[in-house]
Design a protein around this nucleic acid. Structure first.
Lengths: 255, 255
DNA sequence: AACGATGTTTGATCCGCGTCAAGACGGGAG
DNA sequence: CTCCCGTCTTGACGCGGATCAAACATCGTT
């Protein structure tokens, strides 16, 4: 299940030197400005590093936390990929998001004080765990930390814009293109390749996340391949034309 | 455009005594625990009230702020209703959300330090304006304020779950039902009626927000009326069967 | 009152995508 | 190797909803 990519994806984003000690990895993390420098004095930095706890070696399919668990800490993905999901009343799983190395999960649990969703490792994954009481205490004393938390939280607010369902412009194509571009951007933001990447999640998970049928994902990817927009081999993916994908994803089909 | 509801909607949610002085209105606001009591000492409360600035008497269609404006403050709706929207590259408007009295807009501007969207009054509207530097400064000194901001931000994170597009269970019905239930819940949360409410936004805005065609909104509302789920007269709306609407909205069509 | 502008409703037609179904990989166990 | 099983791909068909189009209601103007 956690198959190594074979052909397309030489610099594997999820499994490389991500577990190196020191700041080799940390400077790519969302928390970096807190953990590394960010204007903190040395004593506060030390305090923060005491506060961080490494948890990990989750295997594919294992839960990091479950919906309903009481909220005590937020997690930064250190290695691997995670999906968050809920199970609706009909018993069906609803995928809410995917999280790459350097990204943070659990922020949506602050308000309800319980995790509103499950977090499931998609491949071998490990995390940095930040006790929330401790970090908000630190935030009250270090303005830079507070500000950083505000910004992280704010950043998550804007991401709720699904494309229109407009039959004439292939709405499924839009969603998939936007999804691929989003992945690409996020990998790039963390220092990985923006064009060659590995899909840790199954087609079914992507379909569920985008609220389309799994078969549609297959068809769209095949179409993109025949249009020379991507190369794809199983979970290995290469984006050949970021510009055109971006256009499809944000759909400006006229004017 | 800002037509008063005539028949169905006697206690008008948007225009009643909302502009009364004192805490008559404030105790229903999202900021209440900050503005009113919330464990603050008197001196800090006074400080906060200095910090609040009333802005307002926007008329329907006027902008509260525009996408790209530099971010300096967040706004709590005091009276009226607001929609947030962006204009995509094709020149089409995309409605992102609606905000009722007592709700807060602008939190998504913290990270980019610019407003990512426009805010447009749907009827006569006024606001409480909170300078963000001032309030985050206060948050650093008053833990309760900081925590409240964290919780407000966190609360906004979970709201990104559009229903599936499943042809056999009328996905448009789901969206509309969920939309109506959401409005009902939010009005109730602010002390207004959960069953008799006024739609300040046009069918077109609702359709745009839900990413369906305006005609579909009309059809679904007509269907709901013929099923005795709602009574509707122009912008006036009465929800007759919250239970059934809730079921449709969260779709548990089997099991 | 007549008028156009805007918003709402309803009907007719067509197309994308969900469903069903079958086949093609691809990896692990024997 | 062969078998099995899960994931992925591809085809055929039907339905929901987008689009086009045309009445109708409502409101502010002249």
């Amino acid at each position: 299940m956690s198959a190594r990519p074979k052909s397309i994806c030489p610099p594997d984003p999820s499994g490389r030197s991500a577990d190196d000690h020191g700041t080799q990895f940390c400077h790519r993390c969302t928390f970096s400005s807190i953990c590394i420098a960010g204007g903190c004095h040395k004593s506060e930095l030390a305090e923060l590093q005491c506060l961080v706890e490494h948890v990990g070696q989750f295997r594919a399919g294992e839960h990091v936390f479950r919906a309903g668990d009481t909220f005590r800490a937020i997690f930064a993905v250190r290695r691997g990929t995670v999906k968050t999901c809920v199970v609706d009343k009909g018993g069906r799983e609803q995928v809410l998001g995917f999280y790459l190395p350097g990204e943070v999960i659990g922020l949506d649990a602050i308000y309800p004080e319980r995790f509103p969703c499950n977090a499931v490792a998609l491949d071998t994954a490990s995390f940095c765990r930040f006790s929330f009481p401790a970090i908000s205490d630190l935030a009250a004393r270090v303005p830079a930390v507070q500000q950083h938390l505000f910004r992280m939280l704010s950043k998550g607010l804007g991401t709720a814009s699904l494309p229109a369902r407009d039959p004439r412009d292939h709405s499924a194509d839009q969603r998939v293109a936007a999804f691929l571009m989003d992945l690409s951007d996020r990998y790039a933001e963390r220092g990985f390749s923006a064009t060659r990447l590995h899909l840790s999640m199954s087609r079914g998970d992507i379909a569920n996340y985008l609220r389309v049928a799994a078969e549609t994902i297959s068809r769209v990817l095949s179409r993109f391949r025949s249009q020379e927009l991507i190369r794809i081999d199983g979970r290995g993916l290469e984006l050949l034309d970021l510009a055109r994908l971006g256009v499809i994803g944000s759909r400006c089909d006229r004017l």
